[in-house]
């Protein structure tokens, strides 16, 4: 031994976990959904996704290097996750210029203005998506009909996600009539499950998203608290509405499988930085998202509310972190 001994405070053992590993884990978990969307929408889906991911990474690099003047940290993979998630809530036929603009807003406004990774109060991908949605509503709500690799963007139909169809027709006819109306061509449960419906890139294939959830739970990237509490709340809330008046409300399962709820609950709401840190806090946050989602979906102007619900609850995260504490050891003495 000829080198000096290293001295550091304990512990001297470290887990193999690291920020990049967690981020790439999320990327892997998103892979099935990406494959599914390519299957249904063709190569255009891959194009939108790559443009989004690449521009997010480039913007992050440029902002860190030239504006914040610090060592770029694009290797941690967080910009890739943001890019993927942003792409996943865009329609496949969105002009690529808008995709790049969305990435700039997501990274520049959503993340870097607050100091980069770890400091952003809102989910950056959602900031980008909501910016695009409010600024370019027409382009953002024009979805192509899924026809696999033959998808042509000329036959794009407007506002054709199942939820928007429902939202437009609630007043006109009972729900079961909407479901079976041949003109509206509402997808059934199996189509929802496998992903054959109109919608944003990543929100269509329920099975692929659930597969990703299973992966993230097994790898312990996320815990069950947020997704399960959101999904349960939505199921219970829509279930009550449905039982009270089945004519005017879709059943809970339909709600769970549409409108990007799974995408939001599994990948967006669980974003580490903008979600609460204690288990109790996570459940409160999840329940809040669930309630706001249903409120917006059923009583609001927009057919889909997950993204807004998540952003609203993001704003409550610091408050939740501040007031909802994990139960301390030895706080309440229960002896027996």
């Amino acid at each position: 031994m000829n080198k000096l001994l290293t001295v550091s405070p304990s512990p001297h053992e470290y887990s193999k976990e690291s920020t990049p590993k967690l981020m790439y884990g999320v990327v892997i978990a998103l892979a099935p959904a990406l494959l599914a969307t390519i299957w249904f929408f063709g190569w255009a889906a891959l194009l939108v996704t790559s443009v989004s991911v690449i521009s997010c990474v480039i913007f992050e690099y440029l902002i860190q290097k030239f504006i914040l003047k610090k060592e770029p940290s694009i290797k941690d993979g967080s910009a890739i996750v943001t890019g993927l998630l942003l792409a996943f809530c865009l329609p496949t036929n969105l002009p690529l210029g808008l995709v790049i603009l969305g990435s700039l807003v997501a990274i520049g406004v959503g993340k870097m203005t607050f100091g980069g990774l770890g400091n952003n109060p809102f989910n950056p991908a959602l900031v980008g998506r909501v910016f695009l949605f409010l600024s370019f509503p027409v382009q953002m709500t024009t979805w192509p009909v899924p026809k696999g690799f033959n998808t042509s963007f000329s036959d794009a139909i407007t506002g054709a996600t199942p939820l928007s169809v429902l939202n437009e027709n609630y007043e006109k006819m009972p729900v079961d009539q909407i479901m079976n109306d041949p003109e509206l061509s509402m997808p059934g449960y199996s189509k929802l499950f496998w992903g054959e419906m109109g919608g944003s890139l990543g929100e269509i294939a329920a099975f692929a998203l659930i597969l990703g959830l299973a992966y993230m739970l097994i790898r312990k990237i996320i815990t069950w608290h947020i997704p399960v509490s959101i999904l349960l709340t939505v199921a219970v809330f829509t279930g009550i509405l449905w039982l009270a008046n089945p004519e005017a409300n879709a059943d809970p399962l339909y709600h769970l499988m549409t409108g990007g709820l799974l995408l939001g609950a599994i990948y967006m709401a669980t974003d580490y930085v903008s979600s609460p840190m204690s288990k109790k806090g996570m459940i409160i946050y999840g329940v809040g998202i669930g309630i706001i989602t249903v409120l917006i979906r059923r009583f609001g102007a927009y057919p889909e509310g997950v993204q807004f619900a998540i952003l609203i609850m993001n704003a409550f995260t610091p408050l939740i972190n501040n007031y909802i504490k994990p139960s301390r050891f030895g706080e309440e003495v229960k002896n027996g």
């Binding site: 000096l4 001994l5 290293t6 001295v7 550091s8 405070p9």
Partner: peptide, 18 residues
Amino acid sequence: KTSEYNGALNCTIANSLY
């Protein structure tokens, strides 16, 4: 130099260590 410190870059922490 007789050892290499590899902890948080804070004098008080290093001082309480060694």
